[in-house]
Nucleic acid binder design. Sequence first.
DNA 1: TCGAGTAAGTGTTAATATAGCACTAAGTAT
DNA 2: ATACTTAGTGCTATATTAACACTTACTCGA
Lengths: 220, 220
Amino acid sequence: MNVFEYPLPVTTVDAALLTLRGERLHVALHRRENIPEQGKLALPGGVIHIDEDVDTDAAVLRVLQQKTGFIPRYIEQLRVFSGKRDNRWDWSVSVAYIALVPLADLEAAGKGVFHFYDVDDLPVDLAFDHRRIIAAAVERVRNKSAYSTLPCALLPEQFTLTQLQKTYEAVLQVKLDKANFRRRIDAMGCVIPTGEFQSGMQRPAKFYRFENVMVFNKAL
Amino acid sequence: MNVFEYPLPVTTVDAALLTLRGERLHVALHRRENIPEQGKLALPGGVIHIDEDVDTDAAVLRVLQQKTGFIPRYIEQLRVFSGKRDNRWDWSVSVAYIALVPLADLEAAGKGVFHFYDVDDLPVDLAFDHRRIIAAAVERVRNKSAYSTLPCALLPEQFTLTQLQKTYEAVLQVKLDKANFRRRIDAMGCVIPTGEFQSGMQRPAKFYRFENVMVFNKAL
DNA sequence: TCGAGTAAGTGTTAATATAGCACTAAGTAT
DNA sequence: ATACTTAGTGCTATATTAACACTTACTCGA
């Protein structure tokens, strides 16, 4: 019991770490080794260390750093999931986060603990309410991507406009017109040429990079 | 200490209860009677009762019911504010909510504990980080109002289109064209005539009510 | 009872934005 | 050289938006 004379719920942070693989959104999951929910697939997460973390943002960054070895390109708070979150486990609070990262970053860091699963074709044995958290995260990312530069966080430092368009198409699940897409991106003003060109096949494509100002537009 | 061997932060819920008064957004605050932050102005809030509340949504509704005597027209989770939230008080977690309510509902219930303050002209002596919470709540409401029917929650059951327009103008802090505004509202399809008319001055205005389906538009 | 005043409500149009498609450009493969 | 592929641009019909003028229906005061 605390000064408020009510039992305190356990507070954790959990991250829906999303990336793009083969033109589809994937989420990072690992198989739990301990009870509760032993053997089930779970999002990276952990309890808050109040002596160490200045706030929940710091807590989730610490957890991700420890479990994956890097800091994601983009992170934002999703929302709280709370209560008896699986009818067996105690009352708890999860502060859920959305994190976006380019596949290349993951492969470079590559602590082999996590596997990636297509968000539109998830396995059945997910721990706690993590299926709900993933669904809410994906919904938010898809909504925001329609009128922002969010998907830039899924690409490496340098990318071509065709790669960028394919990324938007994969996230939004629509086909976009090339000319109109390029005009839109151009109007945002935060995707700028690096001066370099993609080698390899056919006409060399200009490389671009993302000026790290998140731009919100009306719609894509 | 708990099973996780880390001290648990206190978890509370706090609500930015917003209403419209004299064409301006106001927030409900009460003066704290107990330590900490005794004598300062604070949002309605309280600790979670894990034996009573099924989740934080239930907790905030219970707190609002107890403190104000009614359930708001609209409520949504804003986000978590956490850490040592005023440099004196312990590490804590606040799950912040946005609640919208018509002024008439407040006056009808009228437990006289709360006073209303213009969100763009707040007093200086706010408790904890409640100024930040209010700022975040107002920003979200203003953003959402530009492309949704959110402001309908600030009006009584029946209202005229002129009242609705004034509400949007107050929330968004812009002047809107009457004809274009009406076309937009009409296109949303969820603001429908009651058949009644406003008595009183000049040409009688049709009364409308809000079909309780939140509609999201591109922009207003 | 009639004209002035006021707020409700509608119609019209020019400017802008969007979507769809056709085109040109610059490389690779044979 | 010629066909093929991907990069990148230009054009136009259509939809959306913004601005303003207008008609309608009431109240008020002479």
